[in-house]
Design a binder for these strands. Structure first.
Ligand SMILES: [Mn+2]
Ligand SMILES: [Mn+2]
Ligand SMILES: [Mn+2]
Ligand SMILES: [Mn+2]
Lengths: 228, 228
DNA sequence: TATAATTGTTAGGCTAATCTAACAAATTTA
DNA sequence: TAAATTTGTTAGATTAGCCTAACAATTATA
C-alpha cells in the first residue's frame, strides 16, 4: 500500500502529464514546485517510485507514470472528485471550498467506501469544476474538446490549448488575459461581423472568428450535463 | 495543530479514562497495548503530550487528560461517531464495518465539514453502536445508566459495571459469560419467580432479580431513540 | 519484609520524508 | 562554441514515530 506522500507524488505527476494540455512528461523541479517541496526531496521520491515501478525515471531525464502508477493515480483522482461532488451536492460547500478538503479525503483507504459513495451520488460523470470522474474500472472519459468558435453562446468553457503556436499569436492570446485553464464565458456573437464577445476574469473583450478558431477549450456546461 | 498520531493517543486516553467504567486514569502499558505500540513508544509520546499540556503525566505515574486535551479528544470522538453514523445511515455500511473506516475519517481537518455533516445527518444523538455523540460545543451526554433489573423486556443493553464488587459476585457474573461492554438482551421475565431470561453472545441464561439489581447497564435502544 | 513479578523508563537505532549546501549536467544565449 | 543560466543530483542533517534491549521503580506474593 502506498503512503499518503507517495500518493500525492503520483497524483501530481498525473496532473502534470496525462491531464496536462502542454506536456506528456514532467521535470523534477516542476514536480517539486507543484508539491511545495524542494527539488532534492522530489528527487529522492522519484528514485523510490522508480524502484517500485510506478514511474519511468532516468537520471537527468523527465518522468512519466508507468501503467501501474497511472492506475493508482486514477484511483486517487477518482476519490478526489467524488468527494468534491459529495461536498458540493450534499453538504452545501461552494465551488471553491471543496478542493482543500478533498485533498485530505482522497487518501482514505476503503474500496467499499468509495464505491458506496459513488452510488450514493448516483454515479456522477463530472465534479463541481466540470472535470471528468474516473469510473470504478479506472476509465477516464477525457472531456470533449473543440475550438472556442464552436462553443455555444452563453456557455462557460475552459481553455486547454491553442492550435496556432506562433509567438505572435500566443502574445495576442496573452494580452487578452487568456491562459491555459482560464475560464472563458461567451456573452454574445455580433451579427454584423461575427466577433465573439467573451468575458475573462470579469473583463469583457471581443475576438475574431479567426482568433476563436485557434483556441482549444472544453465546455464546462456540456461536461457537467453530459449524463445527468 | 495535532498530528494524526497525537490525536490517536488523546482518543485512547479518553476511552481508557473518561469513557471507562472501571478507571479514571491509565498506565503507560495499557495505553501502548490499546494503540498496538510498545510501551517505550507510548512513553515518548506521553512526555510530548505533557509538554504540550494536553495530559497530566508524572514519571512512574498514571496519566489523565487535561481540560485542553479532553477538548481535543471530544472533537475526535465527535468526528468518529458522526462518520460512523454517515456510513451506516447513508452508505449502507453494516453495524460492524463502520468503525474501521471511521478510524481514518476522524482525522480529517475541517470544522466546516464536520458541522455540515452533523446537519446533513440531522444532528444525531448516538452512533450506530448506541454511543453518544458529543455536540459541536464538545458536550457529551453520558448514556443513562440503570440496573439490569430496570431494563425493559426485549431491549438490548450494554453492561458498564456492577454494584456489588465482591469476588464471589464477580465470579458468578463471569460464569454467566458476562463482562464489561458485553451486550445483553432481555428475552423475558418469568411471571412465577421473577427470574429474567437473558441472552449473552447467543447463550441464554436465567438470573435472579437480586443478581440483575447488581449489574449496571446502559440501554442501547433507549440511547438510540432518545431524540430521534 | 524479602523476593518475584509487573510496570515503566532510558539509551541507542531505524525509516520516511523533509531540508540546505555544494556540485554536476544540460540547455540557453551571446 | 564558450559562458551563463537553468535544471537536476548528491551528501549529510533533522524530525516524528517507532523499535529492542537493558534497566529501574513499583506492586504483589510468599
Ligand atoms: Mn480539486
Ligand atoms: Mn492529496
Ligand atoms: Mn467506532
Ligand atoms: Mn484514529
Amino acid at each position: 500500500m502506498l503512503s499518503f506522500t507517495e500518493e500525492n507524488y503520483l497524483k501530481t505527476l498525473f496532473q502534470l502529464t496525462v491531464e496536462s494540455n502542454e506536456k506528456v512528461e514532467a521535470g523534477t523541479n516542476e514536480i517539486a514546485a507543484h508539491l511545495g517541496v524542494k527539488p532534492a526531496s522530489a528527487n529522492d521520491m522519484l528514485k523510490k517510485l522508480k524502484d517500485k515501478k510506478l514511474i519511468h525515471y532516468e537520471k537527468y531525464g523527465k518522468s512519466t507514470l508507468t501503467k501501474e502508477g497511472r492506475k493508482y493515480a486514477l484511483e486517487i483522482v477518482r476519490k478526489h472528485r467524488l468527494w468534491e461532488t459529495f461536498l458540493y451536492e450534499k453538504l452545501e460547500f461552494s465551488w471553491d471550498e471543496v478542493h482543500e478538503v478533498a485533498e485530505q479525503l482522497e487518501h482514505i483507504q476503503s474500496k467499499k467506501l468509495i464505491d458506496k459513495l459513488d452510488k450514493f451520488l448516483n454515479y456522477p460523470e463530472v465534479d463541481p469544476h466540470g472535470d471528468a470522474i474516473p469510473n470504478a474500472k479506472g476509465e477516464l472519459e477525457i472531456s470533449q474538446r473543440k475550438s472556442l468558435l464552436e462553443e455555444e453562446i452563453g456557455h462557460a468553457c475552459k481553455m486547454v490549448g491553442v492550435k496556432d503556436n506562433s509567438a505572435a499569436f500566443l502574445q495576442y492570446v496573452n494580452s487578452l488575459g487568456l491562459s491555459i485553464n482560464q475560464t472563458i464565458r461567451i456573452k454574445a456573437r455580433e451579427e454584423f461581423d461575427d466577433l465573439l464577445e467573451i468575458e475573462v476574469n470579469g473583463k469583457k473583450n471581443r475576438v475574431s472568428p479567426k482568433f476563436a478558431e485557434n483556441i482549444i477549450i472544453t465546455c464546462l456546461e456540456c461536461n457537467r450535463l453530459r449524463k445527468k
